[in-house]
Design a protein around this nucleic acid. Structure first.
Lengths: 221, 221
DNA sequence: ACAAAAGTGTTCGATCTACACCCATGC
DNA sequence: GCATGGGTGTAGATCGAACACTTTTGT
């Protein structure tokens, strides 16, 4: 049970890591996690372990990534880890223990076991889902301006994102809802930004068919 | 370790199931699988167990689905299953043991544990990937006509698929390669069908960005 | 007035669906 | 010839990227 908890910090995503206090891999940074209990499923387990590092109320989305089971991924005894992706909105700044810190994904410290690779898988999943789901709700504050959302998408994706097109794409899909309110301009002036909200806070696929759509007169089987 | 092995039979996908000979759930149909060995990873394990039911050489693609770990998904002791999707081309008809049979997914018999639900997850994964990857290579014979491929896609997706558009979409993406040969017409006549091949036999995402493409002058991070 | 930030209008290209039409074969 | 199955041409719709231009604020 391991969790890749990501949060956009500045222009880059960061991942939550804690410093191992003992062997193996003493002093290296590791993903939060722990063993599966007898009366819980894997998602309940990862949430239980995560609660030791971060306020669970701040984790806006959790989903399963993949199982890592290479017999040589760590020293004996062999461990099978089910990895999860967790997302924390950029405005939340949960209290975390002393041994725990956020690390930019473009400058990871030496990590324990295969946790660097698992982090990469989590980041790839986030990037993919930004394109065809409403997963942005888990990165953004409850209310936000388009330029702020643009910053979050650009940081997560690692490339430039146009505010113009982002707004249009997400609006057309019914993902964004205007609140009717505006933000105060900064000290340098500028037009006040309209504020938006995500229409849903649970994951939904918004662009299901890249191609091979069913015919207009449909009817699923 | 469980495998949802699918194969297109006629106009519907079928899944490989075997009949349990003892309690619990004696007589019900179950997915092939078994326990994880100490010196193998999960994929090697599922392949090892699968080899008891079907010739592995006939399984054209294997990928991880998800972990099923509800403490009440079966009687005690609690079991955690990592489910896989396996695909067998439609022209292969591997020998299978007496206790094993293909079952149409639209008319599943009573299944053991949560195996019906797991089958549904596997089918959904196949359907999704048909749209944005070249995964069709694992359903089709090595060489095939467009109308044959159309039949396979329509069966897997559960809705009508146009041969015209299928050919154009897959050709544009560089997924299909013409062999230059043609098939003999049937007894009723008709123009001989051109035969095609998949350009690759490993999974590749062919339509990566539904939206939010990186800018033209790109550069990944 | 001017700079800064946000938002809108519009063009262009890519891509996919739909449908009419043309081609090759057997009887 | 004509029915049958296969293949191509093309128009229409949708969608998203790019970019110019307008709107609203602060100094």
């Amino acid at each position: 049970m391991l969790a890749v908890v990501l949060r956009i910090t500045g222009t880059v995503p960061s991942v939550l890591l804690w410093r191992r206090a003992r062997e193996p891999h003493e002093g290296r940074w590791a993903l939060p996690g722990g063993r599966l209990g007898a009366t819980e499923d894997v998602e309940a387990s990862v949430r239980r372990h995560l609660a030791e590092k971060v306020d669970l109320a701040e984790v806006a989305h959790v989903e399963q990534l993949s199982v890592f089971s290479d017999p040589h991924r760590g020293p004996a005894p062999r461990r099978v880890a089910t990895a999860f992706l967790g997302l924390v909105p950029s405005d939340a700044d949960p209290a975390i223990p002393d041994d725990t810190a956020w690390h930019r994904v473009d400058a990871l410290p030496p990590t324990a076991f295969d946790h660097g690779e698992i982090t990469r898988v989590g980041l790839d999943r986030l990037r993919a889902k930004l394109s065809y789901t409403n997963i942005g709700f888990a990165l953004a504050p409850d209310v936000f301006s388009i330029s702020e959302l643009r910053r979050l998408y650009a940081a997560a994706l690692g490339h430039h994102v146009s505010a113009t097109n982002l707004q249009r794409v997400l609006t057309r899909r019914g993902v964004l809802v205007p609140t009717g309110t505006t933000a105060a301009p900064g000290p340098a002036g500028g037009r006040p930004a309209a504020l938006f909200r995500f229409s849903e806070h649970t994951l939904r696929v918004t662009d299901p068919f890249a191609a091979l759509r069913p015919p207009s007169g449909a009817g699923a089987v």
